[in-house]
Nucleic acid binder design. Structure first.
Lengths: 244, 244
DNA sequence: TATGGTTGTCTATATCAATAGACATTTAGA
DNA sequence: TCTAAATGTCTATTGATATAGACAACCATA
């Protein structure tokens, strides 16, 4: 484990800071040899805190399903994942991570029709007020939520996309049925922020967690925008890979 | 401002959660009309907390130089920035954000020579143990630190890169002098994590802040790797833009 | 089966975080 | 120049966070 000093009196409890560090170490593979986290007393010494504080941190990680404490033996590492999510001209949710997990699933949370705001109109290169279809979706990998996305589609071409998506679970297939055989990623903007209330619920995160936010524009082969989306990923479960 | 409910008893103090939200709102331009944050009593009502808690949050933002409280008037917004950082085949620090700020600067913090670890050898496609030059640099925009980077270069070709970089402040120019007229970004990996101790110091962040981590590989025009780097950006100051 | 190493539980105490209320001070504007 | 609205400061109280120490319960293994 790396440099140990922990910040006090900063509004972030010691046990949470330590939990974050241990989670990072686990994902980094620091404990792969034993498959276990070091003993509580060792960690307490390393971080320079009381053993009870370490126990709070490990309890939080146990709550997340990352470790499991066994009395008499130690604290076992249960799960360790950070999915690699490629971003390229052909960025699709399921294809990219399909070989990293056993099962990917995409669930339709909600849908509605709305008029294009100034911002959305600018992105999709249409007039403000143009009818759009909005889709709220949840991406899962091996039954764990990974991303939460809001997408907008011009309603004139894709008025029925919600139904088809619900049936097939795939944007790509929905596009195909609606006369868009292929589409490409035009631009992706990536930021990071703290999880808000709905992130916590949808992505099953704990407060203080980080979300990676990707705003993306897809266009058909005639360069006509077909989809604008804002996706929020649990930062400790994914990594973006940009291939040039 | 958006949905207000705040999470209690999560290891993250309310004042810090609220500070994060207000910072986001400021960056989002929610208070651009007045150039001021709403009154403390209003915020206390909105977030459902005591006014003193709001004051703690605003004090933290004042410490960061984002707002300035003036007795009798209100709390003024001092600074508001999130630089857009393009990622493409021709990704360079200064060029990308040069038109967004008045001045960009890159400072050499430290340099050393070291043998390639297994991981670095794999990335740079060389044998483990090969001598490398390591550069620690700090990227600044208008005198505010934006990124902290560690780069490795094969020592046989780029043994003198530290000196040239220090003189010119530019990797691109240093490459040119060392016989690499052009280079391209092969791959970039992007993750997000909480700031560690040295991030806090170098990037002038407050604990609990988020850093965007970009791991990048650059190669010359013969596809021979010339630089592997790990850069850490203050997440509330930048946005990555991927153009395809 | 005895022992060392580990997690689980309990009590007590000190400090930080948050609430509550009161009042002072400053500014802008009527 | 008065008033409303805003930030600044103080005291008091409660609950969460962190430390300290002791001991029980459990596991692997010599």
């Amino acid at each position: 484990m790396a440099g140990q000093k922990i910040q006090r009196q900063t509004g972030v409890a010691l046990w949470r800071q330590i939990a974050d560090r241990i989670r990072t170490s686990i994902n980094h593979g620091d404990f792969d040899e034993t498959g276990m986290v070091p003993p509580e007393t060792t960690l307490a010494l390393q971080f320079g805190v009381n053993r009870h504080t370490i126990r709070s941190a490990l309890a939080a990680l146990a709550q997340e399903g990352i470790v499991r404490a066994v009395q008499g033996r130690g604290t076992l590492i249960e799960r360790k994942e950070r999915l690699s999510f490629p971003i390229s001209k052909r960025t699709r949710f399921s294809q990219g991570i399909g070989d990293q997990v056993r099962e990917t699933r995409s669930v339709l949370l909600a849908t509605s029709e709305e008029a294009a705001s100034t911002e959305l109109a600018r992105q999709l290169k249409i007039r403000a007020g143009t009818p759009l279809v909005r889709l709220e979706t949840l991406g899962q990998a091996d039954h764990r939520p990974v991303s939460r996305a809001t997408s907008w589609f011009p309603a004139d071409r894709f008025g029925k996309i919600a139904e088809i998506y619900q049936a097939t679970g795939s944007i790509t297939k929905a596009f195909k049925e609606l006369g868009v055989p292929d589409y490409v990623r035009v631009v992706t903007e990536i930021t990071a922020t703290h999880a808000d209330e709905s992130d916590l619920a949808d992505l099953q995160l704990s407060p203080g967690a980080i979300v990676l936010v990707a705003q993306a524009l897809n266009a058909d082969l005639d360069d006509v925008p077909v989809q604008y989306s804002i996706s929020r990923f649990a930062a400790d479960r994914v990594r973006f890979t940009v291939e040039n």
